[in-house]
């Protein structure tokens, strides 16, 4: 007997899958000597390029572009690191205790220690373990990423009702997805949403890490990355 055909995905989740950005690569500078300066320079450059992609991606989330420009900015300024961390964690799910910053930049604990990335590594691993345990799927990842943006708790939102409507539509999309794809676990949407506090904690640690690097002034940082760090 063939397994029952899965129901079609909700419109929003299918749309989020379509607008999911292409992979980008870290491309570490081969002329730089290995060490923490090279590792951090590579990560800051990668983060800057990822930010450009994230801003472009956000515009494709149904309902985001109809928010005022000021509210779009506030949501991104609050949530950008959560989006970055969630993407890194999703890429790292197939690995065991390795962090996939990019396809060409996979770091294990030993390499993290040598490269001065151990704090970041140790901060990200618990979140990766949590999503591994849940066996998070791509549809759930794209939904959760959009929810993290809409639910960023910025203190500067002008139109709270409009942001609430965005949250509601994304929340509903996740619930509909789980209702149709995981009827065996009626609490799955809730379990995913309950990971958001750890995502925020992890992102806060990552922002603090990069902010202290910025203050030390030894690593070159591009303007968009600096701008977003300063907004935190």
């Amino acid at each position: 007997i063939p397994p029952p055909a899965k129901k079609p995905l909700t419109k929003i989740v299918s749309h989020l899958l379509v607008v999911e950005p292409e992979k980008i690569y870290a491309m570490p500078d081969p002329t730089m000597p290995d060490g923490d300066v090279k590792a951090l320079t590579t990560l800051c450059d990668l983060a800057d390029r990822e930010l450009v992609v994230i801003i472009g991606w956000a515009k494709h989330i149904p309902g985001f572009s109809t928010l005022s420009l000021a509210d779009q900015m506030s949501l991104l300024q609050s949530a950008w690191m959560e989006i970055l961390v969630l993407s890194i964690v999703f890429r790292s799910l197939p690995c065991e205790d390795e962090i996939v910053y990019a396809e060409d930049y996979v770091v294990d604990e030993e390499q993290a220690r040598i490269s001065g990335l151990l704090d970041l590594h140790v901060a990200i691993l618990p979140l990766a373990r949590r999503y591994k345990k849940l066996r998070m799927e791509k549809e759930e990842f794209v939904s959760l990423k959009a929810i993290a943006l809409a639910n960023s708790d910025s203190m500067h939102i002008e139109n709270i009702e409009a942001v609430q409507r965005l949250q509601d539509s994304l929340h509903e999309a996740l619930q509909d997805f789980e209702g149709s794809q995981h009827p065996e676990d009626p609490r799955r949407a809730g379990k995913l949403l309950m990971t958001l506090p750890l995502l925020r904690q992890t992102a806060t640690k990552a922002v603090q890490h990069f902010y202290s690097i910025k203050m030390q002034g030894k690593i070159p940082m591009h303007k968009l990355f600096l701008e977003m760090l300063e907004a935190k």
Partner: peptide, 20 residues
């Protein structure tokens, strides 16, 4: 907005910022 020039610029239009 002046402080967050690049974010503002990227959200407002589809052109790449000059300094990235």
């Amino acid at each position: 907005k002046e402080k967050h020039k690049i974010l503002h610029q990227l959200l407002q239009n589809n052109t790449s910022p000059v300094d990235l």
